[in-house]
């Protein structure tokens, strides 16, 4: 165990805004500048109120023989300091709303270029991704076909489902990478089969809880190729901390190459029924059911 005090102090002197990890999504910048706006307003309010507080503490400290000012207050003052913060805070609310609706309202999700399904899972703690396969169409999902071998519940009677690509990524140090293209509108349909998780992409400023029984639309558009971490932000059990995933943002060509590779490797989920327990064991032993 070692404790580097000077290293810790280095952090303590840095401005709060410098702590943001690099932003690589189109609307992330907007969210960051909203944060910065509230931050600067707060710093201003902080300095004003703290100066007053400290000045009063010093100026009006106890002195023998002095008598305090007998004064019960003033309605004009009350009025002023009710209205000022109301306007300020209401302003913050109004300018916030556009960014909110843009990132979360399903009506405002732009036409997706790429759509995938994502689920967090708790038995082993990690993420499952589904791509529509070479035919570009997802198979239907049927709730009563959900099993650990077929976590998305792909309907065995639907031809579109036969070629769906499913990637199961256990968390921890060596997750299985999921790839997506940059400069494309990506739509993620998010859910879970067990408990709540939260799909957190720090660099994309994306966070959305995954709720069993509900498919929630999440979208983003990545601006920079690279390797980014996926985190879980909602307590989902003792392995919650371990739900690390990896998202590789590729150029469009690289993405296609990767997809082709995956299609060749994959063994369709539905063609060879495996017993439930062995599938779970496969997940736990750090391989994917789709790659063997």
């Amino acid at each position: 165990m070692s404790f580097d005090f000077s290293k810790a102090m280095e952090w303590a002197y840095k401005d709060m805004l410098t702590f943001f990890p690099e932003n690589v999504s189109t609307f992330g910048g907007e969210l960051d500048s909203l944060f910065a706006m509230v931050y600067y307003a707060s710093v201003a309010i902080f300095f004003i109120t703290y100066s007053i507080l400290i000045a009063f503490i010093i100026m009006y400290r106890h002195q023998e023989g002095r008598k305090a000012y007998y004064y019960h207050g003033n309605n004009l003052a009350e009025f002023t300091w009710t209205l000022l913060p109301t306007f300020l805070f209401a302003g913050i609310g109004l300018v916030s709303d556009d960014a909110w609706t843009k990132s979360k309202y399903s009506q405002r999700v732009p036409n997706p270029d790429v759509t995938i399904d994502v689920m967090g899972f708790q038995s082993g703690f990690g993420w499952q991704f589904r791509y529509p396969g070479p035919d570009g169409v997802f198979g239907n999902k049927v709730r009563n076909q959900i099993s650990s071998a077929n976590p998305f519940g792909i309907d065995s009677n639907d031809v579109h489902g036969k070629d769906d690509l499913v990637i199961i990524s256990p968390g921890g140090a060596r997750p299985v990478e999921a790839h997506l293209p940059i400069n494309k509108n990506v739509l993620v349909n998010l859910s879970s089969n067990d408990v709540l998780h939260s799909f957190f992409l720090p660099n994309f400023r994306v966070k959305q809880d995954a709720v069993p029984g509900q498919w929630i639309k999440v979208w983003f558009n990545g601006t920079k190729a690279g390797r980014y971490e996926i985190a879980c932000a909602e307590l989902c059990g003792s392995g919650h901390y371990n739900m690390r995933g990896l998202l590789i943002m590729d150029s469009h060509q690289d993405y296609d190459v990767w997809l082709d590779q995956q299609y060749k490797l994959q063994k369709p989920v539905l063609s060879a029924p495996v017993s439930d327990s062995s599938a779970v064991a496969a997940v736990a032993s750090d391989t994917t059911t789709t790659k063997n």
Binding site: L34, F35, V38, L53
Partner: peptide
């Protein structure tokens, strides 16, 4: 003194889009 800071941090999270990133 501390309530001023706690109240101000509340305003960050009160703004729903700002809260996306800092929630949890």
């Amino acid at each position: 003194a501390t309530f001023i800071i706690g109240g101000l941090s509340g305003v960050f999270m009160a703004s729903a889009p700002v809260d996306i990133y800092i929630h949890d």
